[in-house]
Write a protein that binds this DNA or RNA. Sequence first.
DNA 1: TTGTACGCGTTATCAC
DNA 2: GTGATAACGCGTACAA
Lengths: 339, 339
Amino acid sequence: MKKGRVTITDIARELNIAPSTVSRALNNHPAIKKETKEAVKELAQQLDYQPNFLALSLLRKKSNTIGVVVPEITSHFFSAIITGIQDVIANSEYNIMICLTNESFEEEVVVIKKLLKMQVDGVLVSPASGTKEFDHFRALQKNGIPVVVFDRDCPGLEADKVLVDDYAGAFQAVEYLIKSGCKKIAHLGGPPNLSTTKHRLQGFLDALKSGNMSICEEHIAYVQGFSHEDGLEPAMTLLSSSNPPDAIFAMNDNIAISAMHVARKLGYNIPEDISIVGFDDEPHSSFFRPSLSTVWQPVYSLGMLSARIVLQRLKEDDVQRPFREEVFKPELVIRGSSR
Amino acid sequence: MKKGRVTITDIARELNIAPSTVSRALNNHPAIKKETKEAVKELAQQLDYQPNFLALSLLRKKSNTIGVVVPEITSHFFSAIITGIQDVIANSEYNIMICLTNESFEEEVVVIKKLLKMQVDGVLVSPASGTKEFDHFRALQKNGIPVVVFDRDCPGLEADKVLVDDYAGAFQAVEYLIKSGCKKIAHLGGPPNLSTTKHRLQGFLDALKSGNMSICEEHIAYVQGFSHEDGLEPAMTLLSSSNPPDAIFAMNDNIAISAMHVARKLGYNIPEDISIVGFDDEPHSSFFRPSLSTVWQPVYSLGMLSARIVLQRLKEDDVQRPFREEVFKPELVIRGSSR
DNA sequence: TTGTACGCGTTATCAC
DNA sequence: GTGATAACGCGTACAA
């Protein structure tokens, strides 16, 4: 009973039986005398015996850990997804290990290597905005580690995927802006490489086309990142031009809020002079004045489903089921920032 | 070279040497022939040998993992702290395991047990709002696991602590409100048990006292949680009473924003009729109209310092240095929601 | 019904 | 300089 934790050997010695018997008793092995079993269990309880997780992991070649790789967690978007993941995993035998890439491809590669070294059993990943190659993910798969991609797609990578129909969300938002009478609709897009950026842009373009509106190149701008600050300059360029738009469909709520901020500074009335629509529906977005129209995404469900898919893969083990691709439908939420 | 990962035994067999020699070569043991060393390293590289983390952990009785326990991560506050922690830990030999308690004492106990079972080497924790006893944390310490408490204090628990001077922050905010001419200052406090709630309340009370203002019980209300929704009803009660306040000092930005929302609905002009000050300085707070006056906290630094302290404890090992208690100073940020 | 022996992958210790 | 051996804690095939 010294410093170290109590092991089955300690219990065995105490009871004058073999460690293996203790092991069997603890694991409810059928062929074990009721009395020994009870004696063992009682002593184990009394000594507060805890099975050694590390030893079990080594023995089973299974760390019971699932890696979760995300660009960042300070936005509500990813933190809500992670909460969904966590709530599912917490009720399983697994633990999750959250890794941040800070939107950097290089850091992502490092993190994946780390997870590989740690022998995680599965990985959930939303790639960094700079990630164009996916060989690091394939390296996981080659080692038998199932990979589930969520929110941001990895084109060409064969894996389970849980995505959002960004195209439909964007299309719906822009279609609504057209119907509400906007004639010059601009788009503040995200980092160009991202699947979400591409799909939302395409939804924007197709909605314009289907509404017989002309597409004006100068009404499309891109932001460098996803924070409020990243939206200020592009919004300013857009709104202070000689041919300003009368509506903005922004990549996300932060950017939309920056645009609102800039628009007001320039003397625009919202929504009278300009309509603004965001994407994500962050909790505080409805508290702005005017409250922000936006596209809601089922973030929590997205996290939960991603986690469930990994757990199922882990259960199947060797069975080779085809990859799943689940696509959630976002929903337009009309509030005060648009006509 | 079948499914399993390549081990030092594989390399040893290939080279007709002993596994222990391979181990020494890989670890740059001084007494080892240059040629064997090079041969081993080359083959290891070629075979993409990865040391087995699990085996090492078992051998060293050290998981190289640090547990991080927080109530939630959807607020910017905790997610920014975690980002700070992660940025420090990422440059060490350790990994972090983030666990959410959802502000529940019961879940917190479960999570701590899990971390104990996983044999984490250290734990960073910010207790749930319902946590009043700390025996589960003491259980960690008894097992030789250093505990660092951050942001929310655990009174009576002997441990390293990284806190914020909530009292000073609150005092400063309320003192400012008094100086700006407010006569009836209300407080929207948090869940009563939390150290942060208590200290901010005390700062509020003492500032009133030092300003020779009377303290009006009906101008103090409490919210159940920290989201926008939690602030609506208490704010409504406060503002629709027969004796409404002309200023509100709120527990955090979310609650302050709810109060602004309610105030506007009731026809108040901000800040002419009522001043509102929050706490936290969330990134979007400056984008509200009027922009929110609030108390800024050095969240990222708080996370970094907490992580550094744990790392140092882990390095010291057996040395019994006295516990540290670091207190960060918050800063009042005056913006448009106050006179 | 229970004990013995072995292996999971690695390193430290003791031989040679 | 290098090889054999033990040990970390556990589960299990095999033997009794």
